[in-house]
Design a protein around this nucleic acid. Structure first.
Lengths: 208, 208
DNA sequence: AATTTTTTTGATCACGTGGTCAGTTATTGT
DNA sequence: ACAATAACTGACCACGTGATCAAAAAAATT
């Protein structure tokens, strides 16, 4: 089984340049989407010529794919940390906090991810998203076990996760709208969001 | 005050062609975003030549702008219907249902709107969104009056609306992801979503 | 029926796009 | 020091983009 072909062969120069490129690519792709972004502008942002960029990534899609892969891993982190405990409600609240933290710290990654799902670039039926599916299903099981043992209220676990994703990512993805409508400036907003969301889920999931 | 310049002059041919074009444009823009969409493909989809399309809309941005304008109106409808009543919780639940219905019936419009906010096409500091702001603020006031009179629990009204937007739109905007992760097929999903969301908000907003 | 106005066409434009390639320079291992 | 390989450059290409325009066709008005 070939795991990653020739990772060992990657030079430090390769690693350095690829990092610079990915940085610039994140900026462009998250602002304009896959089709709207141009490798020329990405190259310019990374302070190099287009052929030089294409020396390190064989084409636009390969670049996007890799960026998306690492973004998915980042995105998935908080969910993977969700594990069995004797205080499941607090565990879920901690997950919500991690997701909010994610939106606050990495809004561009969040938007890249959102853009990909909304616009749906055809990536050969995206095996990129496979890890998500596996993790998701295992956490669904975990939630169901908590419900069966009566430690959290019995609600649909799928929609529970969807709603957490929706409410937390919303602050990064729709930042433009929220910034326009909120009296509060952006940083303090996340504290407010926490103050709103945690009690909501606590009440909903409380056993009694 | 010039309301709409020369609406009276619009021929039935103009109205018909513009409608065909807007239909095709919705498809393309919602799938590829503003920059990713091409007027050539929109024209092809509407079964006409590009110059013919450009005869009815002076340029790409004008077409997008108009599409976005009508979409915003559609999007805003459910919120505008929210009005004072002696059963505020049920009024809010009805609003949630309307938003879910919106996602189910007009997913492309929802995605167009989401894409616009996430990617943020520079539309001359978008006066397009002005009506949203006004409606939003008046509904915030309404919610606050309900809270002050103790008819719903005192929670942050801004975040309450954000969370409703987030959870309801999520089903349209992230349809690809949800369809991939859900055992249930799409139509039934909205019934489930309602079954999950309404109790959550009912519990959270209950006065006692 | 004649004329004016609206609508449509086909040819064409400059430009930015993603991408290639032969050749040059820098880096590396021996 | 030298050969081999990695890293980069500049010129270039075919193509799709948004958009224009003169002229033709169709419709509406008289």
């Amino acid at each position: 089984m070939v795991v990653s072909e020739k990772t060992s062969k990657s030079t430090r120069i390769q690693r350095a340049r690829r990092e610079e490129i990915l940085q610039a690519a994140l900026e462009e792709f998250s602002q304009h989407g896959f089709r709207g972004a141009s490798i020329n502008k990405i190259a310019k942002r990374a302070e190099m010529s287009t052929p030089r960029l294409l020396y390190h990534f064989k084409d636009k899609e390969a670049l996007y794919r890799e960026l998306l892969k690492s973004t998915l891993l980042l995105w998935l982190g908080p969910l993977q940390m969700l594990s069995d405990t004797d205080e499941p409600i607090e565990e879920i609240c901690a997950y919500i906090c991690r997701k909010l933290e994610m939106s606050r710290k990495f809004p561009r990654q969040s938007r890249l991810f959102a853009g990909e799902i909304i616009l749906g670039v055809p990536l050969g039926q995206a095996e990129v998203f496979e890890p998500l599916r596996a993790t998701f299903e295992s956490k669904i099981d975990l939630l169901q076990s908590w419900m069966k043992s009566g430690r959290i209220a019995p609600v649909d676990p799928h929609h529970l996760i969807y709603s957490i994703w929706a409410t937390t990512q919303h602050y990064a993805d729709f930042e433009a709208q929220i910034a326009d409508l909120s009296p509060q400036k952006m940083p303090g907003l996340y504290t407010q969001a926490e103050g709103f969301l945690l009690p909501m889920y606590r009440k909903y999931l409380a056993v009694e």
